[in-house]
Design a binder for these strands. Structure first.
Lengths: 252, 252
DNA sequence: ACTAATGGTTCAATAGTTGAAACAAAAACT
DNA sequence: AGTTTTTGTTTCAACTATTGAACCATTAGT
């Protein structure tokens, strides 16, 4: 891993922390030496990606992230488009809903809305979802080219739980099933006690660019709710895809 | 300059370009070798800060910027707070209005709204404003501690135009004047033919954190409009400061 | 089919990175 | 107030990632 990735990892640490963090804490969380962490933080700070409080000397996320994030948002409106749908679907189903965007071999969670039920699935934007071990991933693959699926399944397929599919053939089968159904399901493949249904979001060329998913505590997942929620994500994901393509939809 | 800064510079290049850019173009713009630019871009891409189009092989800003930008926005609401004020002030005055946030010895432009007049000042979010050569900078200094002002004026003070003040004493004087007036003015100190008025935005501890500025083509800047626009930025900057402190204001 | 331009790869020389150690400055004790 | 502990900062020799010229592969243009 190069220096740049290490430095960017510090940003991720600051994002996951809730609030400012001191040098020692950051270095410990990243597994770097204090001196190393500091040099990186100063460089990030010089570019506005991180801000150091002049009193407490703690570090926090910087304004550059907002500036560039906003620019990206204007050019590529997936996040903006998806947010109201995620909110609505969360309200409608009462379950945690999240959208992800494909990036660098993974699905990056870009928008989450949490269930209000006492027991709920919790996940935050920035969470990285592996393609082979999530409903989102299977849904994404089910909308991808055979070449892409092949390439993905040839890479290492790490095991996260006892239910994770790590065999290319098993995953292929799940992908085919998802293609038939129109949505993908997962049962504790990434985390214990979490089940999901997910649909692919496509661009105007019908290529998948991300996913929409509903994540439910497995104890609430019945065959009935799978087909019900599955139909809902599929429908909503299609609506989002249509909106991205500039096509008219039932909703606005 | 370290490797991290160089890589982050590539993000800035992509942000300034309007649309995707190829490897050669990026390397040329950054002044790096192709191999260097590519290795950095791949590393940025692996972290979601950049996305490579699989067909055209062009690079674009990535979703991580949006994700982390959004997180920062929830923790520190200057951008969110300031945006409606910038819009309103632009509409009211018909001139280009922008807000900036202090970061790493400069003011980083975080929000801009352009005049609709045929001749107007153009600047984009991400623009870096030096403290000593902009109305924003003088306004910021006028709200800063003497120690901070001293430290700033001891650093190199580059000359941008023939009107740039590069003498610590001259800048000190401008700062004192701004403190008396309640707003700062600049006349072609950073760019020819651009004049500005600016006021400081303060946090709940009265410390300056950014600025609000109106940028006008010098040909439209009369003594009258200076005092008029100056009074407006000052008033609006105070309103923003109050809102950030949670205090009630006339507007909502 | 040829040329030009762009993306991608390689590798030895180089320059930036690393982390232990020592130091300074705050906090957190007694 | 004095002592200990923690945290931030600086330094520097060993090391390792970075660099860029040269080369290859691929695509776009004529």
């Amino acid at each position: 891993m190069g220096t740049v990735s290490k430095a960017l990892g510090l940003i991720d640490i600051l994002a996951r922390a809730n609030g400012p963090k001191g040098l020692t804490g950051i270095a410990k969380a990243a597994g770097f030496d204090k001196a190393t962490a500091r040099r990186m933080l100063l460089e990030l700070a010089a570019n506005g990606y991180v801000v150091q409080n002049s009193d407490s000397r703690d570090y926090e996320l910087g304004p550059a992230l907002q500036v560039y994030g906003k620019i990206r948002e204007e050019r590529f409106s997936l996040l903006k488009t998806v947010t109201p749908f995620v909110r609505a679907l969360c309200e409608q189903t009462g379950e945690t809903v999240h959208a992800s965007e494909y990036s660098a071999g993974m699905l990056l969670s870009i928008c989450t809305e949490h269930s209000t039920k006492p027991i709920r699935v919790n996940l935050e934007p920035g969470q990285k979802l592996p393609l082979h071990a999530t409903a989102s991933g299977i849904a994404f693959l089910s909308a991808s080219s055979p070449a892409f699926i092949d390439a993905t399944l040839r890479k290492p397929l790490p095991q996260f739980t006892s239910a994770t599919l790590t065999n290319a053939e098993d995953i292929s089968k799940a992908v085919r099933e998802a293609r038939v159904l129109g949505f993908a399901t997962s049962n504790q493949t990434l985390q214990d006690d979490v089940s999901s249904v997910a649909g692919a979001i496509r661009n105007q060329f019908d290529k998948p660019i991300g996913t929409l998913a509903i994540a439910v505590p497995t104890l609430r997942m019945t065959p009935n709710s799978i087909s019900e929620l599955g139909a809902l994500v599929q429908k909503t994901a299609t609506e989002i895809s249509n909106k991205l393509s500039g096509r008219r939809t039932g909703l606005s």
